[in-house]
């Protein structure tokens, strides 16, 4: 049984034509199912739990990356398949997974190419693509064995599960089926003339890891999962191997 979770913004007038095409296509393909609409009054957690209790085999998030980032942590511990129908602003996660926007995503659902993906875990929260650590002072312990820190305050730190659209080595290195994450120090080119004389300052650092502990050295520091979910430090990061059964498209980036 398919359960479709519609995010709140789907009810806006500008999306009605797209939704109508999606629902028609789902019916034509024989994969129409129960529609659950998120609202201020309904908890997404309740909707997901009810869907699983009622025997849903596939849960589909209809919305954008924020919708996906809300649903994934809730289904990670259930044995259901997960799909996406991207609606609204371009979805980076859907692009990584090879899923086109709108009604064309229905054909991907119907083809039902299911692959098990690793998920990253930050404290009790699962993330699919990346964990961003904003600029600041941190102590980062990797694999329980060593610590790494950047001497360049302008560098950004990101932990990737996969992101084939990211610049630099991340696109080649990250893989959602390899049982590990990649911690990347990147950017931080010197300002002014320094960038012409010190080109090395922009070189990326790559650490393959299975776990990490991130401790903010100042108050109220937090990290951001999949671009939306804020998690306060200290954060324990790990890999949930093959945790997500994902319906993917042919043009996926892995």
């Amino acid at each position: 049984m398919y359960v479709y979770l519609y995010d709140t913004f789907i009810s806006e007038a500008k999306f009605q034509n797209t939704i109508a095409r999606v629902e028609t296509r789902l019916t034509d393909l024989g994969i129409a199912g129960k529609i659950c609409r998120l609202s201020v009054l309904t908890s997404i957690e309740e909707l997901v739990n009810d869907a699983v209790k009622n025997g849903a085999e596939t849960i589909v998030a209809v919305g954008n990356d924020e919708t996906v980032s809300k649903v994934i942590p809730l289904i990670a511990d259930h044995k259901v398949s997960f799909g996406i129908i991207p609606i609204g602003k371009p979805s980076r996660l859907a692009q990584l997974l090879g899923i086109p926007e709108g009604d064309k995503a229905c054909d991907v659902l119907s083809a039902r190419v299911v692959t098990k993906l690793d998920l990253g875990k930050a404290n009790q929260h699962y993330f699919l693509s990346r964990l961003e650590i904003p600029a600041g002072e941190y102590e980062i312990q990797l694999n329980g064995q060593y610590t790494a820190r950047s001497l360049n305050p302008n560098q950004t730190i990101t932990i990737y599960n996969f992101d084939s659209l990211a610049p630099g080595v991340v696109a080649d290195r990250s893989n959602p089926r390899d049982g590990q994450l990649e911690l990347i120090f990147s950017g931080g080119e010197s300002a002014g003339l320094g960038r012409f004389f010190n080109k090395d300052s922009a070189t990326e650092s790559v650490f393959p890891i299975k776990k990490a502990q991130i401790q903010g050295l100042n108050q109220d520091q937090s990290v951001i999962a999949d671009g939306y979910t804020i998690i306060n430090t200290p954060v324990n990061v790990g890999v949930a191997r093959s945790r997500l059964k994902m319906i993917v498209g042919k043009s996926r980036g892995f």
Partner: peptide, 18 residues
């Protein structure tokens, strides 16, 4: 890209790296 770990010029590592 073929190497597994890259410790860049502005990064400091302390501890037992295996």
């Amino acid at each position: 890209s073929e190497s597994e770990t890259i410790i860049g010029p502005s990064v400091q590592v302390e501890g037992n790296f295996n």
